[in-house]
Simulated assay, not measured.
Amino acid sequence: MLPESRVDTSAPRSDLVARYGFRTKPVYIRLRYLGASPLPFSELAVRAEELAGWSPGVRTVFVLENEITYLSLPPVPDAVAILGSGYAAALLRHLPWLDDVDLCYWGDIDTHGFAILDQVRGRFPHTTSLLMDRATLLAHESHWGQEKTQARGGLTHLTPEEARLDQDLRAGTYRPHLRLEQERIAITAVREALTRH
């Protein structure tokens, strides 16, 4: 029904928004102050493009994948937590001020968790990981679960220790399709890791 000039034929037919020139829904990034907040509230959701030009004024940023873990992180001075929600962590690339903070990613110990860490570290090489190590995995055996499908391999931004653990997960060294979801890690282990961090 539309004239050809109104249709972007380079966009796939499945992408209705791009193909027919509709405005896209704004993408929001949710963050929570873990220490004293300079704002009259401790948590906010901000449009990604607006957050790109505003820094929360902290020294440390933790990116977490699970909402429950994000909400239950204990206090950490001069820090914020960002809810990454799986591969939405790719949105962090829009935040140039992350180059100037101590950036720490905490995801599930599974192939997808390492793939997301690899993706984040591809843009922010100074990213460290939190509780994504073999000792944490082995200490929580009673909470192990199963990853339905494994993420692609060929990750190039992991540390040697992370890469070895990722390879062991892919090979089923401890159990086929093993995963440890971050919300199953004991809060005492979280507190100790944050203290060391």
Rank of each mutant, 00 (worst) to 15 (best):
L98P: 02
Y28I: 07
G113Q: 03
M132K: 00
T69H: 03
A36M: 07
L158V: 12
E147R: 08
Y28Q: 06
G154Q: 05
E181W: 05
L117D: 02
A45G: 12
D118T: 01
A135K: 10
V101Y: 00
G35L: 02
G145N: 06
R196Y: 04
L98S: 00
W106F: 01
D15F: 01
T128G: 09
H197G: 02
R196F: 03
E183H: 07
D100T: 14
S10M: 07
P3G: 08
H140F: 03
E192V: 13
P96T: 06
E43V: 13
D8R: 15
L131G: 04
L138C: 07
L71D: 12
P26T: 11
F22M: 08
F41H: 11
Q119G: 15
G154T: 04
D15W: 04
H94E: 15
R164N: 12
A186V: 11
A52N: 00
A88R: 13
R6A: 15
H112F: 12
R152A: 15
T188D: 12
H112R: 07
L130Y: 04
A139L: 14
L155W: 01
R175G: 02
N66K: 08
R164Y: 09
D8T: 10
E192M: 06
G154S: 10
S72C: 15
G145I: 04
Y28K: 13
L98F: 06
G35T: 12
E192D: 15
V46N: 02
L137H: 12
H94K: 11
L83S: 01
L178M: 05
L130C: 11
V58D: 01
R93I: 05
G107D: 03
F62H: 06
S14M: 05
L91F: 07
D110R: 04
P38D: 08
